[in-house]
């Protein structure tokens, strides 16, 4: 599986429905999403984002992943000799079908890969209501 060569995937810029006030660019991070019996895991590629720059929120069933890209040392005065990729922030939204235990969402960031674990909330045990006749 890993013997193949990696191909260049051009970054996809996020298209806003409305105009933004700042000229910062947003890109759609590529993701892997997989599910096990107990949890849903989202892995997103966010190179250049540090722990402080990540913003994850789950509002109703909309999961929003936001990453603020920060290369502090990049200087506007540097002369560009080759420019093959653009840099910018990351933003992507998903509708989560499963019911998620919001209290226990965990996220880790390693080498530019963000991993979010969304534990499924256990469905409430059906309570049996006995009907008594008087």
């Amino acid at each position: 599986m890993t013997d193949q060569d990696l191909k260049v995937a051009n970054k996809q810029e996020l298209l806003h429905k409305e105009e933004t006030t700042s000229t910062d660019k947003y890109f759609v991070p590529t993701v892997d999403i997989f599910e096990t019996e107990n949890e849903v895991t989202v892995v997103a590629e966010m190179p250049g984002v540090d722990n402080d720059g990540v913003d994850i929120s789950l509002d109703a069933d909309i999961l929003t992943i936001k990453g603020r890209m920060d290369i502090a040392d990049e200087d506007k005065n540097w002369k560009i000799l080759l420019h093959e990729y653009e840099t910018g922030h990351y933003l992507r939204r998903f509708t989560v079908a499963e019911t998620i235990d919001q209290e226990n969402i965990a996220a880790t960031l390693n080498d530019g890969l963000l991993k979010i674990i969304l534990p499924k909330s256990m469905p409430a045990q059906p309570r049996k209501i006995e009907v008594r006749s008087e």
Partner: peptide, 8 residues
């Protein structure tokens, strides 16, 4: 792969 940016 990978795309590169080169600065001087």
């Amino acid at each position: 792969y990978p795309p590169l940016n080169i600065f001087e």
